[in-house]
């Protein structure tokens, strides 16, 4: 198991889902309704992300914030991964002793609600609204996961090098959500990034799901993407196929690392 990559994925692809969570889930929303703080996560000598909680909203940012209110430092990526897996892990609290109550009471609630939507009940059928939310966070995680793997997975460096520059638009018909996975040039090299429900100027390649049901099946692992593309009904692709081809390698790796 590549623990450092898994930690990167939690911080850069899963943690951003908190933004969606508090907009949708009333329990999660109430947990932060009166909070105003910046929560920093970092793995020592490794990846970091922060959450800005303010006005009933959460905004995610990659990297270190200049002045976080709470700073959680994990000596090893395994510790952060275990915390995200729901284990009782005590990271080093380098700053924010006055916000301990938030860490003890509210944050676990957020994590629990997110886990609930990501994993589902398994047996219980969910209502349409919940299903659409699960698809939304699934797509959001998928795009962030692809960009994180492409950026951070040393074992796929040659695939990242060979990935053509451009933007892959992934959208769920008829009304979204949608997002992008992009390789763009940067300082003589390249970077990967993802966006979610942001305006798209030009898509070099397009992957479209026929509807939320098709997307949910893929996210749940009940639909093989290659087969679905072949059958030409639930997933359609067009445009710069080498970009889709490489993105699918990153997506596969994301699923494998996260145990999806």
């Amino acid at each position: 198991m590549d623990e450092i990559l898994r930690a990167s994925l939690f911080l850069k692809a899963v943690l951003p889902l908190m933004e969606d969570l508090v907009d949708f889930d009333t329990i999660a929303a109430s947990a932060i309704s009166d909070k105003r703080l910046i929560l920093q996560f970092e793995v020592k000598n490794g990846p970091s992300s922060h959450l800005r909680i303010e006005g009933g909203k959460i905004r995610h940012g990659i990297g270190m914030h200049q002045s976080p209110d709470i700073r959680l430092t994990f000596k090893k990526p395994e510790l952060l991964n275990r915390m995200f897996d729901g284990e009782d892990v005590r990271p080093g609290l380098r700053k924010g002793f006055f916000h301990l109550l938030f860490l003890i009471r509210e944050f676990p609630k957020l994590a629990e609600r997110l886990q609930y939507y990501l994993e589902g009940d398994g047996k219980k059928a969910v209502d349409e609204k919940t299903k659409n939310f699960q698809v939304r966070i699934g797509l959001h995680a998928m795009l962030g996961g692809m960009a994180t793997v492409a950026s951070d997975d040393a074992s796929l460096r040659s695939i990242a090098d060979e990935t053509p520059f451009g933007t892959l638009l992934v959208r769920i018909l008829p009304d979204g959500p949608f997002g992008t996975f992009t390789k763009l040039s940067h300082n003589g090299g390249y970077i990967f990034e993802s966006t979610f429900n942001q305006p798209v100027r030009h898509a070099n390649a397009v992957m479209e799901f026929a509807g939320p049901d098709a997307a949910k099946k893929l996210i749940d692992g009940a639909l093989n993407a290659v087969t679905a593309i072949g059958l030409g009904q639930e997933i359609k692709i067009r445009g710069l196929l080498p970009l889709i081809d490489k993105a699918s390698i990153f997506l596969y790796r994301f699923g494998k690392i996260m145990g999806v």
Binding site: G230, L231, K236
Partner: peptide
Amino acid sequence: QNPAFVLPGA
């Protein structure tokens, strides 16, 4: 020979 390499559905 996978259809995804050609024109899936077409």
